[in-house]
Design a protein around this nucleic acid. Sequence first.
DNA 1: CAGGTCATCCAAAACGTTTCGGATTTATGA
DNA 2: TCATAAATCCGAAACGTTTTGGATGACCTG
Lengths: 348, 348
Amino acid sequence: MPAPVTLKSLAAATGFSVTTVSRALAGYSDVSPSTRRLILEEAERRGYEPNLLGRLLQGQRSQTIAIVMPTSGPQFPDPFFAQFVAGVGVEAAQAGFDLLLSPQDSSSELEAYRRLMTARRADGLLLIRTRADDFRIRYLTETGVPFVSFGRTDSVAHTAWIDVDGVAGQKALTSHLLELGHRRIAYITPPGGLMFTRFRLQGFREALAESGVAADPALIIEAGLSEQAGKDTAMLLLERPEPPTAIVAGNDLTAIGVMHAVRARGLRVGDDVAVGGYDGIPASEHLNPPLTTVYQPVFEIGQLAARSLLAIITAQPARDLPVLVRPQLLARASTLGTHSQRGGGALD
Amino acid sequence: MPAPVTLKSLAAATGFSVTTVSRALAGYSDVSPSTRRLILEEAERRGYEPNLLGRLLQGQRSQTIAIVMPTSGPQFPDPFFAQFVAGVGVEAAQAGFDLLLSPQDSSSELEAYRRLMTARRADGLLLIRTRADDFRIRYLTETGVPFVSFGRTDSVAHTAWIDVDGVAGQKALTSHLLELGHRRIAYITPPGGLMFTRFRLQGFREALAESGVAADPALIIEAGLSEQAGKDTAMLLLERPEPPTAIVAGNDLTAIGVMHAVRARGLRVGDDVAVGGYDGIPASEHLNPPLTTVYQPVFEIGQLAARSLLAIITAQPARDLPVLVRPQLLARASTLGTHSQRGGGALD
DNA sequence: CAGGTCATCCAAAACGTTTCGGATTTATGA
DNA sequence: TCATAAATCCGAAACGTTTTGGATGACCTG
């Protein structure tokens, strides 16, 4: 292990003080050209790299942003999260920031935030899955920690968010089904506290209202966002005397569960029962049949969230938050029917 | 922003010196029990967290492990990586370690390692996608950095690895196809330098040899691990005068591309052309038709890798590395034919 | 020649932590 | 009683950097 090259060793080698070496390298004007050249040469020759820690300790920055993932057990593999993280990571790397992942079950989540910030481990935070009354947002706002959330909230005035327009998204999907002639449309709504749940439900209702279709409360069921939850709920729906002709799931994972249930009842997805998802994960295109869903550009959202957070951290002029992104309806065979799937050409 | 709680502020509050506060919190024996209690209480009350930077600068551990992801652009969303990261994250969190993600294109990868370690950002590293001659492993071994790799290497003596038995996996899949009567089996092999490429190819060849089938070099084509690469390569294969009856892809993503190509040629996957993948990503089960693949327990591998790395970092008694995990063949409709898919019950 | 302006340099403090070596007090043993 | 050991505490240095507030001469101006 070679002795590290520090400002001190450079100072000793060149005969100048640590201060002068530091300022020469930083490009200050109170160093004579000849001195600067000498120091730069020496630094170059010995391969000097500033020690990040010294620099950070001095400036009280860690050059790191963190994402706390609310997860219990091996649950994170939701492709939705993965893409968001990827977007954030790429953007952060570009700015020379590192990305800290902190998987925490929700009970210890607040503790995780506190620890990250008081240990000055991260300069800012990214939040996902916001809630109407979100204790995390309240806490972070109170303590003045820089953060950006993917999702809105009601709990406090908070504008550093970026979100996808759930009302428009769900409305587009539901209208699509209504246009196809469906009247008994079931909606498996995501867990109550989550903010996007409310918007999507609103979109669902608005679409029905605009078509003059009465919303049947019995067709709106709350369930988790897992495949299993989708399957179980769909089973219950299909066992009814008057089963729905279309089932809209809370996300794509849930929709996969619904598709299983439909098939298990001996029905054909897309022909006998239409199924809709939400998120537009990559796999949705390759499902059997391809899933009609609402695409959210999560990777790009991750990038934008990271960029905005970095701007806030470095206290740059106000950025363009909040942002409401418009999602995109992807109509595929799970609602259009499998005849269209045979077209083949649609895949290219 | 409240004034940060530091050793100094705790010292002022309790009336002891910074040294004593530090040693009390660290559990040294030269602090009287009553003093320690007092200091601990005060630290607790004010929510003291040691500043990571100060501690690191001093030359201590960072309680962090890092994964450098070799990625160009928005490529990381490979579910395979995501699951690995999830496994690592969960295990690290349990030990009180944080996980640093550092996405880098391969050109700057070595630089990333150097930066992470000289700045002592991380106590250890996790490597993925090893190569036969892996400059990263050579560098890390030379500098004595604690690390564990997912995959073997030839470049240096290195035993801190965990890998999946690619020979056995590919052999099982190929034998499966041979048993179904296939003789013209194409193999889209992953990029050359990668270590697992060699093992899988060996498994492919061994299976053929054991069945007395001559390996046709024209049926072995090297391609990238993307969906597009799979599609392009399969197109070429299917255009030949004597097309293969089965195509084995380098991973599941590539297999999806192959399936597209097969369909684009007007052929039925599983009936006209058998398709095999590798990895066993969650989506593989829900493809159209479900994909025959070789399952690798990536999440668990991530956990084990993290556990082992933590053991190495804390210089605990030698752990049980290296480990060679046995993968599992998942035979599904993409090779068995779609008639079996109609069974329906198989889904439950 | 006195006063002022520049150009160039540097000592010291600061960030928060750990640790080395000693200092002070109290208890122990002969 | 005196020396010795043990218990408890702390000052100061160190890690590598940046920044503040001068200091030192050289040069100009009047």
